[in-house]
Design a binder for these strands. Structure first.
Length: 789
RNA sequence: GGGCGCGUAGCUCAGUUGGUUAGAGCAUCUGUCUUACAAACAGAGGGUCAGAGGUUCGAGUCCUCUCGCGCCCACCA
């Protein structure tokens, strides 16, 4: 054995084991290995995040603790890693970073930049994950824009199209004028904004004047109708009468609509195409009204805007209010705060425009999705509510087409003559219709020979909702694939339940009619030390690399273990420091153990064990049982507390002190029993710590326990089992806690007298009631008192 | 507007099905270099369990209301 260093130094130790794990392929998946498969549907992070912080560490470490536990429990773990790179976040990141205007750069040039950036991003992640010792199999990786994923994503589209779960339609959709693309309901975010409620007066042909209130006066040129409640006494007599709108002088008919709230504002609503979802619904109830296209995809007014043509929405709002005021058509303006929908990626107010898009049907299957949610095992259970509420409140089918560049292309051509949808053969996937032509030479419907490529790309979730299948198909053979999907575990954060989790369930349900994963483990957020969200803008974080450099990856992970599922966790440097101290303490106990015995000797039989040995073994068994249970339930924070308590407060503070007199004494049998007990207990302690602190435990395993178990790494060794040595023929130690109380009393006595605990005192009269016949000798020697009465 | 969660020591949090005197870590104070560890150890002080009411022999724990914080959802123009 090489010389054992006095201090544990993570900066030296950690790189060594990183290299070892990589070289030896410790975490590599072997389909032929024994054990039940435990497959993880690892979240593929958006690689556009160039600033990784404690929150990222926390959310990825959670799956890692469980995975390492499962691996030691004998499961054959499949833990791949993916990166989500396509889609809006990346495009926006690239646009911002290079300050480019997407319309002034070619599609291929733009994609090239995106690919370069995402490569950097994924390397960032990989570097940090490797530093942290995240035990993924780096030979099993994917990126959502690579060929493998494009193929599966396009296959998914074709399969659902054939199953009639996908359709194309021209209808009012949600639109982001900044990103210039259609978006889905899941991409919306409600934001509280200040606005003005403008009360506008209109003339009725009877000579009456009525007033309606709106936050969107600029849509006046697209006004299609005005409604009141049929039972509203104020307006009943005016229903059916013509109204002349100010400015446009357009005439419309006042209609009755039960959806109108008599109590809100003036009880009069005006509808425009399209002020919001309610306008679309109103249109469906009033077939006589015709939609007017006002806001164009670029966010500017169309020629239907008359003199406002070409203005942006907010400009037009200002101008129209001014003009209305001049025309004397405004009764009053009330500043209000109300929530408006914005595009969550860019914060731009969402517009509703009419456009032709692709949709995956959701609304017709709500009940089935709710049922799937019920089948899924949620950790914590309460997270299911977020899912249920989302599904229940769905208002739109899933719009999957995006008018963007950096995404998986639709595998679709349109017949130039009859618009028939032409799909490629599945064996040709992935295809890029912009660069390829379909195999068929003529349209099967009309015989025309010209095909136009579909230019849209998929919503990024169209692809990432397939991660369990993408992961599964990274393995070549069908027999293995079958075991990998559905996945055993989906770990993820709560804020993407309505997107990633929901969409994945949708896909799996439609494609294979089962759940995509059996268990969902939902994490909360990592917050800063004051409880604020960690963000680049606030700069309220220390880069994890810095923390790791100073305290070690184990210490960083130690903090992350403190998270309770579904709850936010504040970053706490003190916890990191405690983690660092724990590594030091572990190292010191290891050195102490090795001082007395070079080779690890575990308990072989219980013949010479003494009461203190039985006591610590019993405590160990209790700890193993509790820690195991907690890891099983994903409550690793509690598991950590239990291990800490046992290790610091029972093993280090008491047991080690209890056996010093035996280790330095003459009684060989007693010494042997003590060292075997210590070795056994400590071995199990480092095994229990292994999922949390893989580096220090590996170092101790390789330095001190080589030979105790033949596995190549502690992370492939077996999880501790209760040895129940204190049961059966073992001595009765139910009164051992009295002895501990007596020890406490001795310690207190010395402390209060200012005497070092290591100094022998002549005599002490104990107040604690304890069986001196049984424990007198032990108390004298362990407590260093010559005479006890 | 509806729903969920939280509020326990100066700080960060544990407190399982209601049951002796409410716990831990950090911080504070006192002592100790004890043949693993001063990055440690031994000890001490510190709490109207957000507030009010109720159920009960007994409430941090169950019920009702109030206040404060966080989050999710909701087309109110």
């Amino acid at each position: 054995m090489k010389e054992i260093s006095k201090h544990y130094n993570p900066q030296e130790v950690e790189p060594k084991w990183r290299e070892f794990w990589e070289k030896e392929g410790i975490y590599r998946f072997n389909p032929k290995a024994k054990g039940e498969i435990f497959s993880v549907d690892t979240p593929p992070p958006y690689v556009s995040a160039d600033h990784l912080h404690a929150g990222h560490v926390m959310s990825y470490a959670q799956a890692e603790f469980v995975v390492r536990f499962k691996r030691m429990r004998g499961f054959n773990v499949y833990y791949p890693m993916g990166f989500d790179d396509n889609g809006l976040p990346t495009e926006r990141f690239v646009e911002k970073k290079y300050k480019i205007n997407r319309s002034k750069i070619s599609r291929s040039e733009f994609i090239k930049l995106c690919l370069e950036e995402t490569k950097k991003g994924s390397e960032n992640y990989r570097k940090l994950w490797t530093l942290l010792g995240i035990s993924v199999d780096w030979t099993k990786t994917y990126s959502t824009i690579n060929k493998h994923c494009r193929r599966i994503s396009q296959w998914s589209f074709i399969d659902l199209y054939k199953k009639e779960k996908i359709y194309r339609a021209k209808k009012p959709i949600l639109w982001c004028t900044a990103c210039r693309t259609a978006i889905a309901q899941a991409d919306l975010e409600a934001e509280e904004k200040e606005s003005n409620l403008v009360y506008i007066k209109v003339k009725v042909e009877t000579g009456d004047e009525i007033v309606f209130a709106t936050t969107r006066p600029e849509l006046l040129p697209a006004c299609m109708g005005i409604s009141v409640h049929p039972n509203d006494k104020r307006y009943k007599k005016l229903i059916g009468k013509k109204i002349t709108l100010p400015l446009t002088k357009k005439k419309i008919t006042l209609t009755a609509d039960v959806a109108t709230d008599m109590k809100y504002g003036s009880g009069v609503v005006y509808y425009c195409s399209y002020g919001g979802g309610e306008c679309i619904e109103w249109l469906s109830r009033h077939p006589e009204a015709k939609a007017i296209e006002l806001v164009l995809p670029n966010g500017r007014f169309s020629k239907n805007g008359g003199s406002y043509e070409g203005m942006k929405v907010l400009e037009a709002r200002k101008k129209i209010v001014e003009d209305l005021q001049k025309a004397g058509a405004i009764e009053k303006i009330e500043p209000i705060k109300h929530s408006v929908y914005v595009h969550e990626r860019c914060g731009t107010d969402v517009e509703y425009i009419e456009s032709e898009q692709w949709f995956i049907k959701l609304l017709e299957s709500k009940k089935e999705f709710l049922k799937r949610g019920q089948e899924l095992k949620w950790f914590p259970k309460t997270m299911k509510r977020i899912y249920d509420e989302w599904v229940e409140n769905l208002k739109w089918d899933w719009c999957i087409s995006r008018q963007r560049y950096f995404g998986v292309p639709f595998p679709v051509w349109h017949c130039a003559k009859c618009s028939e949808v032409i799909l490629p053969d599945e064996k040709d996937l992935p295809v890029d219709p912009l660069e390829e032509q379909p195999r068929i030479k003529a349209c099967p419907k009309c015989g025309a020979k010209v095909f136009l490529p579909e230019k849209d790309v998929f919503d990024t979730w169209q692809t990432s909702s397939l991660t369990p299948i993408i992961s599964q198909k990274l393995m070549g053979d069908a027999a293995t694939q079958k075991k990998l999907y559905p996945s055993s575990l989906r770990p993820q954060a709560f804020e993407i339940i309505r997107t990633w989790l929901f969409y994945t369930i949708v896909k799996s349900h439609y494609h294979h009619n089962h759940l995509p994963f059996a268990n969902a483990m939902i994490s909360g957020h990592g917050l800063d030390e004051q409880g604020r969200k960690i963000s680049k803008r606030l700069g309220n974080y220390i880069p994890p690399e810095k923390i790791i450099e100073e305290y070690g990856a184990d210490a960083m992970r130690y903090w992350a273990t403190g998270a309770t599922l579904g709850q936010s966790l504040r970053f706490n440097i003190l916890e990191v420091k405690k983690g660092r101290r724990t590594t030091t303490k572990l190292w010191n106990v290891a050195r102490f153990m090795a001082m007395h015995e070079k080779k690890p000797k575990l308990i072989a039989n219980s013949d010479h064990l003494e009461r203190a040995d039985f006591w610590i073994l019993e405590e160990m068994d209790k700890t193993i049982a509790e820690v195991t249970k907690n890891f099983e339930n994903y409550t690793y924070a509690k598991a950590k507390d239990k291990i800490d308590d046992f290790f610091w407060s029972k093993l280090a503070d008491y047991y080690v002190e209890f056996i010093k007199y035996r280790l330095f004494g003459e009684d060989k049998k007693s010494k042997d029993a003590a060292i075997r007990t210590l070795t056994t207990v400590f071995f199990n302690v480092i095994k229990m710590y292994a999922p949390i602190m893989p580096f220090v435990t590996e170092e101790i395993f390789q330095t001190f326990f080589k030979g105790a178990e033949k596995s190549k790494s502690i992370h492939l060794s077996g999880w501790p089992e209760e040895i129940s040595a204190s049961g059966g023929k073992a001595a009765d130690i139910s009164d051992f806690k009295e002895a501990i109380k007596a020890i406490d009393e001795i310690r207190k006595f010395k402390t209060e007298k200012g005497i070092s605990l290591g100094i022998d005192i002549k005599s002490l009269k104990l107040k604690t009631k304890v069986n001196l016949k049984k424990y007198g000798d032990f108390l004298k020697k362990a407590g260093r008192v010559k005479k006890i009465t």
